[in-house]
Structures are given as structure tokens and as C-alpha cells.
Design a protein around this nucleic acid. Structure first.
Lengths: 239, 239
DNA sequence: GCATAAAGCGAGCGAGCGATCGCTTTTTAT
DNA sequence: ATAAAAAGCGATCGCTCGCTCGCTTTATGC
């Protein structure tokens, strides 16, 4: 699977996402006509991600947002009740879309090794297609309230667990060998996240997400398949 | 080398660091007596890192800092001329200390494999000893002015290059095999950074930095020594 | 074409920010 | 004990922020 193939089948247009936001915040959004509401929500969300990723959500002012969208202060507040709610809208909607696509992309592979490859590619392609959102969610998570911050941490742990369980199945099937499947998953996750956190670095090197995915796959398999290396926690591998 | 050994020999007390800050900003700091200045600089820097890592530097107010340090607004401004200068003071001093210790820690290993191990451990132990600073520098880098932001990027690339050069020497010596030493270095760096970025996760698991270092070492060697895997960029390994 | 609803506007509000400075308290030296 | 120097203080300033609301403009239905 390449990124081009993934993009074609994922079908995550901004319009669809904004329609979803509209549906889940119908009562607090003043606009009555769907076409108008979706058009402005697209403007607002694009501008929010662009501005916040450049200078941080706290440093971004609602007046900045007004300038970037072409909407007045008053018009903006027809779509959210406070700046904090805007943050929460972006994050909760994004998280929902990501979770849906991640689970969908994983059901199709069979065998632990293929599942690991699939999980790596799906995660990378998703973070490529929604890079501004992924970066935003990572950097702004600590500015959230306690319950929202907890959800962000749970989201991180959930994707790590997903990787760990694949590796655990691989070990049980005798296809993989690692001293600690949770730790292996954590290291793989760190490599996956580097793609959207260090975009500037990889963009400068003209490295495509397909090639990056290839490297991470190779590294992950070297890590999980490697036999006989001394285990750092005192046990040897289980194979 | 363990973290305990590293801590003993590194000798980076807060007092020493603050004395260094004082020396490099002597003209703009109003306090005349060194003892007083160092004591207050310690208060200010500790509180700044704690507050900024909890809510972000932008969201932290100088009044928060006043409350946390027990110093008045006026007294604080005897130690920096603006909130922005405070940010720059913390980052530039931290960067200087880190660079000095990193280079010092690396001169003592011989042979590419031992140098790679040493680089991994030194980086991890340093980020453990100065975790608040590392986290701060990572998260606040984009709030800096353009020239400071450029220095932060250069710093990131410098440590990556350091790893890449070790791997390149290992390949030339026939001890390592990888399709792309720069990419291998980038992935190792991502694993190193995860330690101070996801502190909450590893703390909850009661994972020591020594054990984490063992895992990363194992992963890095699996990545660099792995023979015969198909290269994702179309060439086979050079060995 | 007109009445009504929907959408959009932006000056203005109070709050809280970074930063200042004339004054008081503490320390030091004689 | 006293004068000078150093350190510490916090009310106050100008400014910008998030947010509001009465008004204008645009779209819709008959």
C-alpha cells in the first residue's frame, strides 16, 4: 500500500469532517443553513490549525482568526461560544475521525508481520493526510482541561497497545522475538510520531512518506525479529 | 555506565549553572552580590521551568512567577528586562551546558559500536538530569524569534549528525550495515527524545532511565547491524 | 417588491497582561 | 549608631485580550 492508494480510499474531505462537526454541535452554532455553516467551519478550522501550528493556540488571538478567515469577531462567535470551546471542537472531532480510520485500516491485514506493517503504514499515512491536526493535537494537549488531557493520554496509550498486541501475537506464533513487547511498541510509536513532529526536517530532505514508511517498517522488523541479542531487563527472548 | 555514575561525574549543580547565567548577563542583572543573585536566579529558573512545562510559557504570567518565587514584580525585573529575554536566557544557557557535556561525554569511547552506545547513554542521561529543560526547549522552540528558532533547528541537526557520523564510520569499518546512515540516526534520535517527551508514561511504568537506555541500545544495534533486509530505497546495504 | 428571517458586522466593555518607578526595608561598612 | 548602598516592593500605566450586542446587510418566501 502506498500513500496515493491510501488517500484515494480513505475519503476524508474537509467538507465531510465539517459536516460532522456541525452535526455534533448543532445547538450551539447559530447558522441555520448547512451550506453556509460548513463553508465557514472549513474556513475557521483551516485557519485555526495554520495559525496555532505557527505560533501556538494560546498566542493566536481571535482577531488573528478574524483576519485569516475574513469573518468578523461577531460572526466567529456564531460558531463557537469561547476560544476554549474552539480548541475542544478541533481536538475531539479530529480524534474521532482518526480513530475511525485507524480501526478501519487495520481490519484488512492477516498475520502478525503483515498487521505490523499495516499498522505502521496506516498510522503514517493518516498523520500525513492530517498532518496539521496531528501536530496540533500533540503540541496543544497540555493546554486542555484535566478530563480532556486524560483523553489525549488514553489515545496515546491506545495506539501503543494496538502495536503491542500485534507484537505479542507475533511472539506467541513464534514469528517474532522481543524481550518486552510493550517497550518495542513504545519505540515504534516514537518513530511514527517523528514524521509529523519533524516535518520541516524531512521536507527539506525531500523524503516521501512512502520511503519513510519503508524505513520504519525495516527498523520495526529488525527490532521485533532480532534474535539472540542480550535483553536489557535480564531475561532472554521467549522464542 | 549507569545514570548514577553519570550524575556523579557530570557535576552540573543548579548553583553552577546559575553562576554561569549571571556571568553572561552581568550587565543587565541589577543585583550586585553574587550570593544574592545566584539564589534568586535559582528560584526564578526553577519556577519558570515548572510553570512553563505545566501550562506553557505564553500562558504563564509574570505574576504567576512572582507568586511561585516569592519575589515581587519589581524584583523579578531586576533579573531580566522582559519576559521574552527570560525565555532566551533559559534556552541559550541550557543549550550551552548541554553541548559542553555532550561533547565531553563522547570523547572517551573507542570504536563505532562503543561510540554509538556511549552517544545513546550520554544523550539519555543528560536529558534525564535536565528533563525540565529538555522538555521546555522542545515545546517552546516555535515561540522564539527567527534567529533563535534557527539555532534550535541547528542544535537538533547537530546531534543527529553526530549519530550519523558514528554509524557511517561503523559501516566503513565493516562493523555496521544500513542503507541510509542519516535515516538510521533520525530514527534513533526519535527514540531518544521520547524519553523526556513522554515522561508521564514511563514514570507510571516505573521504568528507569538505565533500562530505557538498554532498550534503545538494543534497538539501535538491531537497526544498524541488521544484515540482508530489503532496503526501502531500492539499494541493498553496503557491506 | 416587500416582509421576515438569517447572516454578518465592529466599536466598545471589563479584565488581566507585561512592564515601570518612586518609595521602603534590609544589609553593609565605618 | 549612622550613612550609604543594595535589595525589594506593589500600585499604577498603557495596552491587548476574549467576548458582546445593537445594528446593517443579504437571502428567502410569498
Amino acid at each position: 500500500m502506498t500513500f496515493a492508494q491510501f488517500s484515494r480510499q480513505a475519503g476524508l474531505s474537509r467538507g465531510d469532517i465539517c459536516r460532522e462537526i456541525l452535526a455534533s454541535h448543532r445547538e450551539s452554532i447559530k447558522a441555520k443553513k448547512e451550506a453556509t455553516a460548513v463553508k465557514n467551519l472549513e474556513l475557521i478550522f483551516d485557519a485555526t490549525l495554520a495559525l496555532a501550528n505557527q505560533k501556538g493556540f494560546q498566542a493566536m488571538t481571535v482577531r488573528d482568526l478574524s483576519r485569516a478567515t475574513g469573518l468578523s469577531m461577531g460572526a466567529l462567535y456564531d460558531y463557537f461560544t469561547s476560544k476554549e470551546e474552539l480548541l475542544e471542537m478541533v481536538l475531539s472531532t479530529g480524534r474521532r475521525v482518526v480513530m475511525r480510520l485507524l480501526e478501519k485500516g487495520l481490519q484488512e491485514a492477516e498475520g502478525p508481520v503483515e498487521q505490523l506493517r499495516s499498522a505502521i503504514r496506516t498510522h503514517l499515512f493518516l498523520s500525513e493526510a492530517m498532518q496539521p491536526f496531528f501536530f496540533f493535537a500533540y503540541m496543544e494537549a497540555r493546554h486542555l482541561g484535566e478530563e480532556q488531557k486524560e483523553r489525549a493520554k488514553q489515545s496515546e496509550l491506545a495506539t501503543e497497545r494496538l502495536l503491542a498486541e500485534i507484537i505479542q501475537r507475533g511472539v506467541k506464533a513464534g514469528l517474532m522475538a522481543t524481550a518486552d513487547h510493550q517497550m518495542a511498541a513504545a519505540l515504534i510509536k516514537a518513530m511514527l510520531q517523528d514524521w509529523y513532529l519533524k516535518r520541516w526536517k524531512y521536507a527539506k530532505r525531500r523524503l516521501s512518506v512512502d520511503r519513510y514508511a519503508g524505513f520504519v517498517e525495516q527498523a520495526a522488523l529488525a527490532l521485533c525479529l532480532a534474535p539472540g541479542l542480550p535483553s536489557p531487563c535480564g531475561e532472554t527472548s521467549k522464542s
